[in-house]
Computed example of a mutant assay.
Amino acid sequence: MNREKKLNKPVASFILLTNIIFWPLFLLVGAIRMLGFPAWVFDIMLCISAWSSTFAFGVLFKRIYPGQSFIQFVKDKFKNKLKFSVLFTVSMIQVFIFLLILFFVSNNSEVDSIFTKSSWGMLIYFFFKNLLSGPLGEELGWRGFAQIELQKKYSPLKAAIILGFWWGMWHLPIWFTTGYTGIDLIKYMLFFMISILSTTIIIAAFYNLNQNLIISIVIHQSFNFFIGIINENLVDLIMYNAFLYLAAAVLLIVINPKKVLYGKEDTNINNGKHYMS
């Protein structure tokens, strides 16, 4: 039996296939909305489309890691014990950002309520819908594979910047469904990319500190969930997130905790272990 040839550019292949899978799924999501299907059908298809990166990674896995088990790979991403200090620190950073945005919104907004969800039931439903259609579907491919794979060649900071750009570009079709045009669309795209790049750097830092994918899932979930429950003009909301998450990312770059982002002792990760270069 002939074995498949190992991919020479696994990350590039992953990003390309992720987009090839995502675009038709996203078009199907749009068609479902236009044809007036029930909301739950739309939510399910939106969730499936968000898993395009996991689908792409699954398809390519045997050519990226010949002889390895996909199931074991996934298990390994969660095997390290969660560090309370890491989880607590990143949670407090995002709660602080959320509270700052609430302060800005409460002072500047003319809406009746600063929250988009009016009941606990709606809030819980949104939480789990958001979890399934974002973090759980995206983090295995983008962080569990691509971030770590790029760190074999680049520092974690440079890897995060490269990955953040392509992760942001993956959202391209979503940008044009916001209804914004002209300067508002440009502002939305700019602030969105700043938010994505900043969040990717934050994820890289804390994920490398703990080496458990739950860390990146929590960061991703908190970002999406908090922004989704605040009732504010979307461009302004993205702007607040962009500058606050950028400030947090810059602070991490300056502090460079345990040299996880860059430096003379750059941390490269191979098979879940640290190698100092």
Rank of each mutant, 00 (worst) to 15 (best):
M1W: 06
L7Q: 11
N8Q: 14
N8T: 11
K9R: 14
S13M: 11
S13L: 02
F14G: 02
I15N: 02
F22I: 01
F22L: 09
W23C: 12
P24Y: 11
L25T: 05
L25I: 02
G30R: 10
A31M: 11
R33I: 13
G36E: 04
F37V: 10
F37H: 03
P38L: 04
P38N: 05
W40Q: 10
W40V: 13
V41M: 09
V41I: 15
D43P: 00
D43G: 00
I44A: 15
I44E: 00
I44D: 03
M45P: 04
S49I: 03
A50C: 04
S52G: 08
S53R: 05
S53E: 12
T54P: 06
F55L: 13
G58S: 07
V59C: 12
L60E: 08
F61C: 07
K62S: 14
R63D: 09
Y65A: 04
P66M: 02
Q68W: 00
F73M: 09
K75C: 06
K79G: 00
N80H: 13
K81Q: 13
L82D: 05
T89I: 00
V95H: 04
I97R: 04
F98I: 00
N107F: 13
V111P: 00
S113C: 02
S113H: 11
S119W: 07
W120D: 01
G121E: 02
G121W: 00
M122W: 01
I124W: 10
I124D: 03
I124E: 10
F126Q: 12
F127I: 06
F127H: 05
N130Y: 02
L131M: 13
L131V: 09
L132F: 15
S133W: 02
G137Y: 03
E138M: 08
G141K: 09
W142Y: 11
W142T: 01
G144I: 02
G144R: 03
A146K: 07
A146I: 11
Q147P: 06
I148E: 14
E149W: 01
L150I: 10
K152M: 03
K153E: 12
Y154I: 03
S155G: 04
K158P: 01
A160Y: 01
L163K: 00
W166Q: 00
G168D: 02
H171P: 04
W175V: 06
T177F: 05
T181M: 02
I186F: 15
L190V: 15
F192Q: 03
L197R: 00
T200M: 12
T200P: 06
I203S: 07
A205I: 06
F206P: 05
N208F: 04
N210F: 05
I215L: 11
S222L: 15
F225H: 06
F226E: 04
N231F: 07
E232L: 11
E232Q: 15
L237T: 07
N241E: 11
A242D: 09
A242P: 14
L251Y: 14
P257E: 00
P257S: 00
K258M: 03
L261R: 06
L261M: 09
Y262F: 13
K264Y: 03
K264H: 12
D266T: 15
N268F: 12
H274Y: 15
S277I: 14
